[in-house]
Design a protein around this nucleic acid. Structure first.
Lengths: 136, 136
DNA sequence: AATCATGTAACATTTCTTGTTGCGTTATTC
DNA sequence: GAATAACGCAACAAGAAATGTTACATGATT
């Protein structure tokens, strides 16, 4: 796999589950579908569980299931659960030579934060259920 | 420096230039301000030049300048010039076990492309001139 | 008790970004 | 026209981050 695969893996898995919400899937099954490793799957889905999007059961006939209705899980939920922070970092190290540099830095940071916030707002308008089935 | 620094470096540099569009700056100056290496600066700014946002002059008293008015350079121009593609990759390797997998993949790709497109549209609403001076 | 699944830690591998050095080219300055 | 100062570019080094892998503990079901 390659870059930015967490979001992709999460969306594929959730989309798959949305088509059959009562069936639980093991991390091995999911990994096989996604062409990756069960441990990697558990790492990513673990975050979604912490965010209350999935549940997991141990033991025989255990596995992963949606914790809520597909329609109530937005892409923003997923994005935030994965703590992606794609745009915004740009932290200030405070080591500025001129005061204008500092002011500029604040301005750039503000703009990037705005962009990030807008991105999340847009992500919130689409749910897992919308990803579910393609009729393209 | 850290991750995702290209966009940050580009915005800082362009914002700086926007305050004094006629003054040209060397990659060494810029690198010193940004706390990085002149070659790194040239790599990043080279892309902006290819996109027609900057010009560069060799030789004595050469350096970098804006190629256009600050008001005409949007964040989308910068983002696209850097070829960031933050959201969208998710290329299809065609190795799907079931046909539903393929359909799902297309759907996920479509959604991510939409998100990316919206991001660019939003970036287009802000210009370098808007980043120029902070009065916060 | 045996089996099957998650949870987690530790480590290896791979990939990506950034940093660095070196040298060629071009333009200016003296 | 020689020295200087800038970019252009390639090659390589270093570092960080993501992903892959192995191993084992824990818990639940059969």
């Amino acid at each position: 796999m390659k870059r930015n695969s967490r979001l992709s893996l999460a969306l594929h898995t959730l989309g798959h589950m949305a088509t059959d919400p009562d069936q639980s899937q093991t991390s091995s099954d999911i990994a096989a579908h996604a062409g990756t490793n069960p441990v990697v799957v558990r790492r990513v889905l673990g975050r979604l569980r912490e965010a209350g999007l999935l549940t997991s059961e141990k033991g025989h006939s255990g596995g992963w299931k949606l914790a809520r209705e597909p329609q109530s899980i937005t892409l923003a939920d997923v994005y935030l659960a994965l703590d992606e922070q794609i745009i915004a970092p740009d932290k200030d190290d405070g080591d500025h030579h001129c005061s204008m540099e500092h002011a500029l830095h604040k301005q750039v940071s503000r703009v990037l934060r705005d962009v990030e916030r807008n991105l999340v707002e847009q992500l919130a308008t689409t749910t897992i259920a919308d990803v579910q089935i393609a009729e393209d």
